[in-house]
Design a protein around this nucleic acid. Structure first.
Length: 221
DNA sequence: ACCCAGGTGTTTC
DNA sequence: GAAACACATGGG
């Protein structure tokens, strides 16, 4: 019975652009800023991208607010390990993350000077060399902090695609699927970097609302 | 008492 | 490689 439904959905979602259109109909990110991630295009995104690793965004917001209170949400002032550690406790794994944030800030300043130059010059390879930055975080920073044409993949994407009957076994495979379906159609749409940013945002918002259970609500599709 | 959350690094086979 | 584990908090 469920297999039948999955087959139907698989037929309906044959490429990622079909998924994009379906998600768009649900108006998941209408109340957000254009790139979905709060304060996109700022250093705050870099900090949030580290903090949200295996942590709930509601907890990350508490940490970000603490940092904001001490005026630490900028590249120049994020320097005191003890203060950072204390501020980010609400989102967990604070020893690791505080150390990584401090080190990352130092490396950005040393290599690129300021945040604006970082956004223009940084490469995925450079980000992946940094301690605490893997593929997803690197792509999130490129997409939401640097406004690059980068599609973020994550466990939500894989989970949603699995629900739709599509199986992938690596970050790269999921990312390729998401990008390939979109690439053929993006000329019909807005700026590619914004399209990618919103697509991933919609996937996250959909999963936060409907993928808590083992099965998504099929009627939504 | 479990499992999960907008993952990553290290260790071990 | 890929599996298992640590990191850490709080909500369901």
């Amino acid at each position: 019975m469920e297999g039948v439904l999955y087959k139907k959905l698989t037929l309906k979602i044959s490429n990622s652009y079909d998924l994009y259109k379906k998600l768009k109909e649900l108006n998941l990110i209408e109340d957000r800023d254009v790139r979905w991630w709060p304060n996109s295009g700022t250093f705050e995104v870099v900090v949030g991208a580290i903090l949200t690793q295996n942590s709930q965004w509601t907890r990350v917001e508490l940490s970000l607010n603490n940092l904001r209170k001490f005026n630490l949400l900028n590249l120049e002032s994020l320097t005191d390990l003890d203060v950072i550690t204390e501020a980010i406790k609400p989102s967990g794994m604070y020893h690791q993350k505080a150390e990584r944030l401090k080190l990352l800030s130092e490396n950005i300043k040393e290599t690129f000077g300021d945040f604006e130059n970082f956004c223009e010059e940084v490469s995925r390879e450079w980000l992946l060399e940094q301690k605490g930055i893997g593929k997803e975080t690197a792509d999130a920073i490129l997409c939401y902090a640097c406004k690059r044409d980068v599609m973020v993949s994550d466990s939500y994407s894989a989970k949603l695609l699995n629900h739709l009957g599509l199986e992938f076994d690596s970050y790269d495979d999921v990312q390729s699927f998401l990008i390939n379906g979109i690439s053929d159609f993006y000329h019909e749409e807005k700026e590619l970097s914004i399209l990618y940013a919103q697509f991933h945002g919609m996937i996250v918002e959909f999963c936060k609302r409907h993928c808590k259970q083992k099965r998504i609500n099929l009627e939504l599709f």
